[in-house]
Nucleic acid binder design. Structure first.
Lengths: 234, 234
DNA sequence: TATATTACTTTCATCGATAAAAATTGTATA
DNA sequence: TATACAATTTTTATCGATGAAAGTAATATA
């Protein structure tokens, strides 16, 4: 990842200097999603203050925010820990994701305009390019690819007419992403992946909702199953 | 006000003394949902410290958490404000709510067991009782009724097999609730309300998914329309 | 008069220290 | 040996004060 804050993006040449609390928030979230901070890990304040080179207050604010997102669990008067990861959650995550994205995708296909189509085409373009570079570098956890992957999936549903629903989908994507990183499945069907996305793109642009939904669903369930089979995370 | 925390309820004879930050969190959220803190209001720290009789740090933690939920908007280096309320958001909220609860309800009707049925029956019982007391007292914003109302709707979808989806629905309910409070529509079709819920219950228990979904959808859209017509919150 | 610059005030973000709670250790008792 | 209790240490939560940024008013310059 090593990318700039997804959540606090903003900063459009406009002023608004990022605060320390937000910086720690981003770094903590990154390290959790990326698996560097293992599920269930006790987050001792003293250690974190040292590790992230910050103070008590900004750290606490960051943790508070993360606890509201479910990235971190707070236990009153006994601090924070990284939220646990279980196979059941991954299954539930996948199930829910299929439901929500089906709606969002169908709505988008019904209402999407040409700008929406363009967003998809562009997103696919970037994804494909990142995929080629990833293959070349044999670096199978390219943060660029991850970014573009998420962008592509968001583009598909970006005409659903509900930013709330999109936010939910984005949250589910983030949480699923974490499981992919936890199961250290390095080389998971790279060969097919780009093709899958291509087919998905085509179906969507053809406004073939049923096919698109089917492809999307398969995309998620297959990925999920691979992770489950890998047998990591208890 | 002066009510006990909804979210941090817990405290099951188990120890775990609630922290000050959580207390402020609850009270702030309550006052926002309830409309006592108007949308868009600038939340000046000094004022809040006084109003909620607390310190800098707990207050900030509370606000940080609320900002992650979307109750409060944070602007880097210029503090917090109550998140704004617009008609478009209410419409989006309602639309999204219909989508998500339809899924959750259909799933529940398909998979629900007898315990699920019992939860619904009980929830309806409490709702009806609260409705009668509300009518008697001519107190049309009874917090008890609100609680039971939410409980009832949650019970309906409580067999959907996805706590994630249920959490989403609960969040949508909370945010919709806020709009109901903002539009000071005191007496909105009280007479029909209980009946509506009764029909809904019957359809669900009969496992008649299509009817149930239709009733639910109407329930939400009609309520929403009344609020929109009231023309509050620009 | 309008704009730019500066000094001043208010408000927010962060630090360091302290209070409060939990966890750990040690000791005495059955 | 196991358990209860007290004393000690560690860790978390909160306070009060300071540093940093944004906002406001005043003055100067075109």
């Amino acid at each position: 990842m090593a990318k700039t804050s997804t959540d606090n993006a903003g900063n459009r040449d406009n002023d608004a200097i990022s605060t320390q609390a937000s910086s720690v928030y981003d770094r903590l979230q990154h390290d959790i999603l990326t698996g560097q901070l293992q599920p269930g890990l006790k987050l001792r304040l003293k250690d974190l203050i040292e590790k992230y080179d910050t103070g008590n207050s900004p750290l606490r604010e960051a943790l508070s925010r993360l606890s509201a997102t479910g990235m971190v669990v707070r236990e009153e008067n006994r601090g924070f820990r990284v939220s646990p990861a279980h196979t059941e959650e991954l299954m539930e995550l996948t199930r829910t994701r299929c439901w929500l994205e089906e709606i969002a995708l169908r709505e988008s296909i019904t209402h999407g305009d040409t700008e929406w189509e363009e967003r998809i085409v562009l997103a696919y373009h970037w994804l494909a390019r990142a995929a080629r570079q990833k293959d070349k570098a044999a670096n199978h956890t390219s943060p660029e690819w991850e970014t573009h992957h998420q962008e592509f999936h968001l583009a598909l549903i970006s005409a659903c007419n509900s930013s709330i629903l999109m936010d939910f989908c984005a949250e589910l994507a983030k949480r699923s992403f974490r499981y992919r990183n936890l199961a250290e499945v390095v080389e998971y069907r790279d060969s097919h992946e780009l093709e899958e996305h291509r087919e998905l793109q085509d179906a969507v642009l053809n406004r073939d909702a049923d096919t698109a939904v089917e492809l999307l669903r398969k995309h998620y369930t297959v990925t999920s199953q691979i992770l489950l089979d890998s047998g990591h995370f208890e």
